Simulated assay, not measured.
Amino acid sequence: MRLVVGLGNPGKEYERTRHNVGFMVVEELARRQGAVLKKKFLFPARVAKCRIGEHEVRLIEPSTFMNCSGKAVWGAMKKWRAEPGNTVVVYDDVDVAFGGIRVRAKGSGGSHNGMKSVLEWLQTKGFPRVRVGIGPKPPEMDMIKFVLGGFPEQEHLKLEKVVERAADAVESIFSVGTERTMNEFNQLQIG
């Protein structure tokens, strides 16, 4: 089983914030596959079942809030017996410029509290991730206000393209592997 987990915060007030780009990418993948994300009984996430290429995939949006994302990712991996290498985590990254996408096969959580939680729960760094650029944060702005803030009107069209491109990267990981996907996607910057 393959999993795609988008990190974000549940609730209407967070829907279009920078911190919910991971959810936006999962929703784009669900839209492409004609899948519907539904709240699972006794499981802290919205989940959809679909196929990406030849793989059966569960698309997951944890409802545990960002800083506790690891609990839902760990629970999903146990429930669907997914290996770390078959679990792709998609999340926002303030250290990547808006429009940039960075694919990695493994690594640290950097300054991202959601990824820190995932790493703590999984006890491994060895899973692919798609980092979606939301930066840079203006120096005078508080980090929490920045990531929980919405995108300015002039960035909405670009945001749509970035989300589509990040979804392309996830599909590419499943079709050609993480290394080739890194080579194709990491140099691109959506203008």
Rank of each mutant, 00 (worst) to 15 (best):
R32Y: 08
E13S: 12
N9T: 06
Q33P: 00
R51W: 15
K40F: 04
F41A: 08
V57D: 04
F43G: 06
F43Q: 11
L42N: 11
N20T: 05
G53E: 09
G34Y: 03
H19V: 10
F41P: 05
F23W: 05
V21Q: 04
G53T: 11
C50M: 10
Q33N: 11
A30P: 11
I52Q: 00
K49D: 14
G53V: 09
T17M: 07
A45N: 11
A45Q: 09
K39L: 08
R31Q: 13
H55W: 10
R31T: 10
V47E: 12
V57F: 13
K49A: 13
E28R: 08
R51S: 14
E56V: 06
A45E: 07
R31H: 06
V26Y: 04
K39E: 15
Y14V: 14
V36D: 08
H55T: 03
K49P: 12
E54K: 14
E56C: 01
R46C: 10
A48E: 05
G34C: 04
F43R: 14
L37A: 06
V25R: 03
E54Q: 07
E27Y: 01
N20S: 12
R51T: 10
R18Y: 03
K40H: 07
A45R: 06
F41Y: 10
V21D: 07
V36K: 15
G11D: 14
A30H: 04
F43N: 11
V21C: 09
K49M: 13
A30M: 04
V26I: 05
F23N: 11
V26G: 07
N20I: 09
V25P: 12
P10M: 05
A48K: 08
V36T: 12
G34A: 09
N20F: 00
V47K: 07
V21Y: 00
E56P: 02
E27C: 02
V25F: 05
V36G: 04
P10F: 00
M24K: 10
K39N: 11
N20K: 03
G34R: 01
G53M: 12
G22L: 02
K12M: 04
N9L: 09
A35K: 01
E54I: 04
F23D: 15
A30V: 03
H55G: 00
R32P: 05
G22T: 03
V36I: 10
L29N: 07
N9K: 05
T17P: 14
K38L: 13
M24D: 15
R31V: 02
C50S: 12
G11F: 03
A30Q: 03
R32V: 03
M24S: 13
G11S: 11
R32T: 10
P10C: 10
G11H: 03
A30E: 12
E27Q: 07
L42V: 02
I52T: 00
H19N: 15
R46G: 03
R32C: 08
E13I: 13
V26N: 05
K40P: 00
T17Y: 02
A48R: 02
C50D: 03
V47H: 12
P44G: 07
V26C: 05
G34H: 01
E28V: 00
G53N: 02
A45H: 05
A35S: 13
E56H: 05
K40V: 15
V21A: 09
A35Y: 07
L37H: 09
R46Q: 15
K49R: 14
H55P: 01
R46S: 15
Q33I: 00
E13V: 13
K40L: 15
E27G: 02
E54F: 08
G53L: 11
